[in-house]
Simulated assay, not measured.
Amino acid sequence: MGVGIGVPICIECGTHSNPCRCKVVGPTLGFLAFAVAAVVEWPVGALVFCFRHHKGRRIMAHPATVVYPSVSNAVPI
């Protein structure tokens, strides 16, 4: 038997951006964009953190504070 890799699906309910009050596509794309950005930015942020703590923290926080919300909010469904 093989082990399958599932696709992450994120659901956000209680939103006012569409009549259904639930979003699936935006949060899912936001999570995938977050994961791609994190793979690149977290190692860079960790290296920068060794020399400039504040700048390294900002780099490592960028996927969660900027990438995910902007992609998630760009898609209303």
Score class of each variant (00 low, 15 high):
residue 58 R to A: 04
residue 67 V to G: 02
residue 64 A to C: 07
residue 28 T to W: 07
residue 66 V to P: 00
residue 45 G to Q: 06
residue 28 T to F: 08
residue 1 M to S: 13
residue 54 H to D: 15
residue 63 P to C: 01
residue 42 W to Y: 11
residue 29 L to T: 05
residue 60 M to N: 03
residue 73 N to K: 13
residue 33 A to R: 03
residue 26 G to D: 05
residue 33 A to K: 03
residue 31 F to M: 12
residue 17 S to T: 06
residue 25 V to Q: 15
residue 24 V to S: 06
residue 60 M to H: 01
residue 14 G to V: 06
residue 6 G to T: 09
residue 77 I to S: 07
residue 39 V to C: 14
residue 5 I to H: 14
residue 72 S to I: 00
residue 49 F to N: 06
residue 38 A to W: 10
residue 32 L to G: 02
residue 36 V to A: 15
residue 56 G to R: 00
residue 12 E to T: 10
residue 71 V to S: 06
residue 6 G to V: 10
residue 7 V to H: 13
residue 22 C to L: 13
residue 28 T to V: 09
residue 22 C to A: 11
residue 76 P to N: 13
residue 9 I to N: 03
residue 66 V to W: 08
residue 48 V to L: 05
residue 6 G to I: 10
residue 39 V to E: 13
residue 26 G to I: 04
residue 3 V to W: 11
residue 72 S to N: 09
residue 2 G to Q: 15
residue 36 V to H: 11
residue 46 A to K: 01
residue 3 V to T: 03
residue 44 V to P: 00
residue 68 Y to K: 06
residue 69 P to I: 04
residue 25 V to N: 13
residue 48 V to Y: 02
residue 54 H to P: 01
residue 16 H to P: 01
residue 29 L to A: 15
residue 57 R to T: 06
residue 35 A to K: 11
residue 36 V to L: 15
residue 36 V to W: 11
residue 22 C to P: 00
residue 55 K to V: 12
residue 17 S to A: 04
residue 42 W to P: 00
residue 9 I to F: 14
residue 14 G to F: 10
residue 28 T to K: 09
residue 30 G to D: 02
residue 18 N to W: 04
residue 34 F to H: 13
residue 1 M to I: 05
residue 62 H to Y: 12
residue 24 V to D: 05
residue 60 M to F: 02
residue 23 K to H: 04
residue 21 R to Y: 11
residue 69 P to V: 07
residue 34 F to D: 05
residue 32 L to V: 09
residue 35 A to P: 00
residue 32 L to F: 14
residue 13 C to D: 07
residue 18 N to V: 06
residue 35 A to E: 10
residue 55 K to M: 10
residue 37 A to P: 01
residue 49 F to G: 03
residue 10 C to V: 15
residue 58 R to K: 08
residue 76 P to Q: 10
residue 30 G to S: 04
residue 21 R to G: 07
residue 28 T to A: 10
residue 39 V to I: 12
residue 4 G to W: 14
residue 7 V to N: 08
residue 54 H to Q: 15
residue 34 F to T: 01
residue 47 L to D: 08
residue 4 G to N: 08
residue 37 A to S: 10
residue 69 P to Y: 08
residue 33 A to G: 04
residue 46 A to P: 00
residue 11 I to E: 12
residue 40 V to K: 07
residue 71 V to C: 10
residue 20 C to N: 12
residue 9 I to M: 13
residue 27 P to V: 02
residue 37 A to G: 05
residue 2 G to K: 15
residue 4 G to Y: 14
residue 63 P to K: 00
residue 63 P to G: 02
residue 44 V to R: 04
residue 74 A to Q: 03
residue 37 A to T: 02
residue 41 E to I: 02
residue 60 M to S: 01
residue 8 P to L: 12
residue 67 V to N: 06
residue 50 C to H: 04
residue 61 A to C: 05
residue 35 A to I: 09
residue 31 F to C: 05
residue 60 M to C: 10
residue 51 F to S: 13
residue 32 L to K: 11
residue 43 P to I: 11
residue 74 A to H: 10
residue 71 V to P: 00
residue 23 K to Y: 03
residue 45 G to R: 03
residue 36 V to Y: 14
residue 71 V to W: 07
residue 57 R to C: 11
residue 56 G to N: 03
residue 14 G to E: 05
